[in-house]
Design a binder for these strands. Structure first.
Lengths: 194, 194
DNA sequence: CACGAATGTATTCAGCGCACACATTGTTGT
DNA sequence: ACAACAATGTGTGCGCTGAATACATTCGTG
């Protein structure tokens, strides 16, 4: 009757990451405790150490996962529209949505990276932003974006939207004004229409 | 000979804040410990509690202080130039400088505010950005900025520069490219010249 | 100068990250 | 089949932390 829990969890790493994502959303990165996560998942408090060298390694993994999810969202948003201007707006909106829904996650993703694990997180970030660069590469084909501007415009879009997300997330700009601010920002990019 | 340390420190609150600013710069917000700060300053580990209700209250105070310093820097940068375009560039450059020099502090300042102390921090942020809004108000007098656009442009400038700072601080954009990216961003604001 | 408010001290407690020795299970070569 | 080894989970202990509480000292003020 009493189903004995097997000695080996089987998928402990992913289970911890999943639980960490939930706690992160509810209580922020400061509320993430390896011991509490262990208890939640039902293993001893030392078990996760087999999968995460230390607490920072767990945070890095959560952040990398976040960038992967953000990248997927951006890719979907871009692919949903054929024309440059629509792709630009859709990507920016998707970014803002993600940032407001997962404010704590984004805060962690963009936290100052110190250790060696930071390199992997940074690579994840670069990959995630690829769809945005594609928007401007596509815009160049449509003749709206000048040659060689694609990369710089991509970074500028990331910076602008991340900045807006940041301001709204920390409460300096009311959430109600986020959309209008984003529209104003996107509208200033070449070929976005007034 | 042996100068007896007085029972009352005299300026404990400011001493803790000063020491916290140093530790924050060296080791980040996660490295801030009330107990260690107490030892550094030379008081018992419970003493700071008379001035900061809990750890978060200390972080809030450090953040508020950071916004005050940022505001001063921005004001100085703006006041140093008479013309709109120069003021815009100087302010943006001053912001980026501050952000790169005090990356850990800025990260703390823009951290998601939860508790009641967040309101004071948010007010400090709004005050600090006032010089930037003034730039565009001044631009309207010069006829470069349209009526009613000042506030929105100000927030957009904050968002853009904060976003760039964020990207550079977390290592996604190399520090060497920060200046060029900032130039490109500022150049897209009305009346900034090409 | 007495008395309350402000400020600092000493002690205690629970939770945390981390390190280590040990236990159990999965895998692989012969 | 089975021995040896790698991978994974457990239990214990240490030092540090934030927080709560009772107590001590000093300051300010009537």
């Amino acid at each position: 009757m009493t189903q004995t829990r097997p000695y080996h969890h089987g998928n402990l790493r992913q289970a911890v990451l999943d639980r960490a994502a939930v706690v992160l959303r509810e209580r922020g990165a400061a509320g993430l405790s390896l011991r509490e996560l262990s208890a939640d998942v039902g293993v001893s408090h030392a078990a996760p150490r087999r999968h995460f060298a230390d607490r920072q390694a767990l945070l890095d993994a959560v952040a990398a996962d976040g960038f992967a999810r953000l990248g997927t969202r951006l890719r979907e948003a871009v692919d949903a529209h054929p024309r440059y201007a629509d792709r630009l707006r859709a990507a920016a909106t998707a970014y803002l949505d993600f940032g407001l829904t997962e404010a704590n996650l984004v805060e962690l993703m963009f936290a100052h990276q110190r250790g060696a694990g930071g390199a992997q997180v940074r690579q994840g970030a670069t990959d995630a932003f690829e769809p945005l660069l594609d928007v401007f590469r596509h815009g160049r084909q449509e003749g709206v974006v000048a040659d060689g501007d694609a990369e710089r415009l991509g970074l500028l879009l990331v910076a602008t939207v991340q900045g807006i997300t940041n301001l709204v997330a920390c409460g300096v700009v009311p959430a109600a004004e986020a959309g209008a601010l984003l529209d104003a920002a996107v509208g200033r990019f070449p070929g976005a229409g007034a």
